[in-house]
Computed example of a mutant assay.
Amino acid sequence: MASLDITLSNGLRDVRLELTLEVGSETVALVGPSGAGKSSILRAIAGLLRPDEGCIALDGTPWLDTASGVDVPPENRSVGLVFQEYALFPHLSVRANVAFGATNPSLVDEILERLRIGGLAGERPGRLSGGERQRVALARAIAREPAVLLLDEPLSALDAHTRDAVRGELRELLASLRLPTILVTHDFEDAASLADRVGVMVEGRLLQIGTASALVAAPADPFVARFTGATLLHGIAQPGRDGLTRVVLDVGGVAFTTDVGVGRVAVAVHPWEVAVSRTAPEDATVNHIEAPIDSLVTIGNRVRIRVGPLAGEITAGSAERLGLREGDTVVASFKATAARLIHLA
Rank of each mutant, 00 (worst) to 15 (best):
L215W: 10
A319T: 04
F227I: 08
I182S: 00
A338I: 09
A311L: 08
D164L: 15
D328F: 07
R133V: 05
S318N: 07
K335S: 13
D283P: 06
G60F: 11
F256I: 11
R167E: 07
A2V: 14
R278L: 14
L81R: 01
L138M: 12
A339T: 12
F227K: 04
H91T: 12
G308F: 02
P309L: 01
D164P: 05
L112M: 04
L177H: 13
L232K: 03
L206H: 11
A175P: 06
V248Q: 13
R302D: 15
L21D: 08
P105A: 07
I314P: 00
H343T: 14
L232T: 00
L149Q: 08
E110L: 11
L128N: 03
V274Q: 06
D221A: 01
E53P: 03
A195Q: 04
A57H: 14
E273D: 15
E113P: 06
A280I: 13
P146Q: 08
V82P: 08
R124G: 04
N287S: 09
A44R: 01
L173E: 09
N10Q: 14
F256P: 01
R321Y: 10
D164F: 09
A29M: 06
A175S: 13
V202Y: 13
V265K: 07
I209T: 10
L206D: 11
I142Q: 02
D109S: 08
D52T: 12
A225K: 00
F89Y: 14
T66Q: 09
D250P: 06
D159N: 10
D52W: 06
A230Q: 10
R205Y: 09
A99R: 14
A160F: 02
S34G: 09
I56N: 05
R77K: 10
S25E: 15
G235C: 13
A102H: 06
W63Y: 14
L174Q: 00
T231Q: 01
L174R: 03
G168Y: 01
